[in-house]
Design a protein around this nucleic acid. Sequence first.
DNA 1: AGGACAGTTGAACAATTGCTCATATGTTCA
DNA 2: TGAACATATGAGCAATTGTTCAACTGTCCT
Lengths: 119, 119
Amino acid sequence: MSDKCDINSPHEDVVKKLKKEMPDAQSFEKSAALFKALCDPTRSKIIWALDGNELCVCDLSELLGMTQSAISHQLSGLRKANMVKFRKSGKEVFYSLADEHIRIMLESGMEHANEKEDE
Amino acid sequence: MSDKCDINSPHEDVVKKLKKEMPDAQSFEKSAALFKALCDPTRSKIIWALDGNELCVCDLSELLGMTQSAISHQLSGLRKANMVKFRKSGKEVFYSLADEHIRIMLESGMEHANEKEDE
DNA sequence: AGGACAGTTGAACAATTGCTCATATGTTCA
DNA sequence: TGAACATATGAGCAATTGTTCAACTGTCCT
């Protein structure tokens, strides 16, 4: 833990206030989980592609130029996080977005990232 | 790569269209980097705390109940990603948010994560 | 100068990640 | 039934992550 920084710091009050206002750990965990789905390019491509489209693993595999297995593994993670849902039809499995939030987050993330040409 | 799924798939057109519309790899990398700052609870707590407040390492360390070293390492990462800026004053180093986007993203992420009580 | 404090940094480590490869399941069609 | 296909999954592996620990830099104060 902290070696107890200067108790008379001019920031003591702010820290105290923040401690009270700070959302509980679980809230941070949840939002982190949401962002986790988007912090990997492969996953964000998948989510981008599924935005408005119902696609099978094979479609995604071709679109992203990646192994069917790699895609399937990622989808499995997104499934566990309730970010995508799926529908089986014969041999194929069609995936689509299960979460409205994640779509919105990706869209604004992509916007922001591209406004940020300053680095 | 893909073992070439059924070429006559009813989704071939969609895939073709998506291939054309798909943003370049770099765009995805950039947005992923933005989300990466937020996908870890420690980092998102730091960003939350710095939202509107200029805090020193020690303040953050006390607020989060974590080692000063752990905080410093995380800040170093956020610095490299241009997410935070800092100002030295005597022994202390004051950090603040350098990026408007990240603030907005965290806020909406926290909102969305908490609306999502359904799991 | 010397001690105390704030912060940074690098090495080390366990845990996690993202992928590949091989294999398994389940479906369609001849 | 058996071959071909779409997908899922587990083991294995290299790379990355998040933290700790110890050592270091720089500043203030006496």
